[in-house]
């Protein structure tokens, strides 16, 4: 039964990916601009290519990228390519392959986002639960208000404030980048420390806001759970407050949070575009921005496809994990 359900989920997953990928293919075709012309016009402004040359070049590039083929053929080629994770060449950074561009940016973003998401989920959930548990204490009421304020501020705004005070004024942190311009990336301690040093401010700006979001959600759930009959019974059983809080309260209140967390993971690939831009962080966000401004279709396709796959995978993850933490949905 469980195997059957997993198989069905995986089939759904493939169907979702196919449908989204198809949309992903056709939507940009509606845009009125031609990427090749766009790129060449840019080129023409900096170097001196004539209009004639542009026309010839455009034709050559169209052929090179297969843009002269009929739409249905391009669609099937596209499906074949993405199934093998081959996104072709980037138009804006020709002749780099899109796969290499994404491969270079993805670890930066994943490292930053997964760590900050997990850390802020853990902290936010516990703080929110405790704020509900001690609703009557003035301190916790103050904490709740502060969290609510932070949860309402966008990531990048916090980022700008942090840069101003801690980097520009204080000088304790670098203002931008994933590592300093002068060092050579490599697997050694000094470089790892440098990466960590550079990632702290972006991480902090994401964490501050998302801790607030997690805490507010958890606080609401925990207040509801505290009104449940089993909480009254747990107290009447003379259980230690710690057990009532964790095993009875948090254990039940966290269930919807886990769903949100999994959906959150679906967004990690592009989760903090603006933060990456503010901090000049060499991740997926920056790559996405660049490729959009330059109408670099292959790269956009590639990023969006990775995004679709991660969202679909994280939804599969919810379906697989939820029965493990909530016995009521095991059927």
């Amino acid at each position: 039964m469980y195997i059957q359900r997993i198989l069905r989920r995986i089939l759904t997953l493939l169907a979702v990916i196919w449908a989204a990928a198809t949309l992903n293919f056709f939507l940009p075709q509606l845009a009125p601009k031609n990427p090749i012309t766009e790129k060449l016009t840019q080129l023409a402004e900096t170097s001196g290519i004539s209009g004639n040359q542009i026309a010839v070049l455009t034709e050559a590039f169209n052929e090179r990228f297969g843009l002269d083929q009929p739409l249905w053929k391009r669609y099937f080629d596209y499906l074949h390519d993405i199934a093998t994770f081959d996104f072709g060449y980037s138009i804006s950074s020709y002749p780099t392959r899109v796969g290499d561009l994404i491969g270079g940016a993805l670890p930066w973003t994943l490292g930053l986002m997964i760590t900050t998401t997990l850390v802020s989920f853990a902290i936010g959930t516990l703080v929110g639960a405790y704020a509900a548990w001690r609703r009557d204490s003035l301190l916790m009421q103050a904490v709740s208000s502060v969290l609510m304020v932070f949860s309402a501020i966008p990531f990048y705004l916090i980022g700008l404030v942090l840069i101003y005070f801690l980097a520009a004024k204080g000088g304790w942190f670098p203002i931008s980048g994933g590592y300093s311009l002068f060092s050579i990336p490599g697997w050694n301690w000094s470089f790892a420390l440098e990466v960590l040093h550079h990632s702290l401010l972006p991480a902090l700006s994401i964490a501050i806001a998302s801790i607030g979001i997690w805490a507010i959600g958890m606080r609401g759930m925990m207040v509801t759970v505290q009104g449940e009959d089993y909480m009254v019974f747990a107290k009447a059983k003379g259980l230690k407050p710690r057990r009532v809080f964790l095993r009875y309260g948090v254990r039940n209140a966290v269930l919807p949070q886990v769903t949100t967390l999994a959906l959150f993971f679906g967004q990690v690939v592009t989760g903090a575009v603006l933060v990456e831009i503010v901090f000049g962080y060499p991740g997926m966000g920056n790559l996405l921005l660049e490729s959009i401004t330059l109408f670099d279709y292959p790269t956009i396709y590639g990023i969006v496809f990775i995004l679709i796959v991660t969202i679909a995978l994280s939804m599969l993850l919810v379906d697989l994990i939820y029965p493990l933490i909530d016995p009521r949905v095991r059927a």
Binding site: E228, D229, Y230, V232, F233, A234, K235, A236, K237, G238, L239, K240, P241, R247, Y248, R251, N252, L255, I325, D326, P327, R328
Partner: peptide, 24 residues
């Protein structure tokens, strides 16, 4: 107070339907 609950005075609650922790 806590120690005397269950050991000396036990309480059987009204809402039998929801008095047990659903995930344990």
């Amino acid at each position: 107070v806590r120690a005397s609950r269950l050991a000396n005075v036990a309480y059987i609650p009204q809402g039998a339907m929801n008095s047990l922790n659903p995930v344990l």
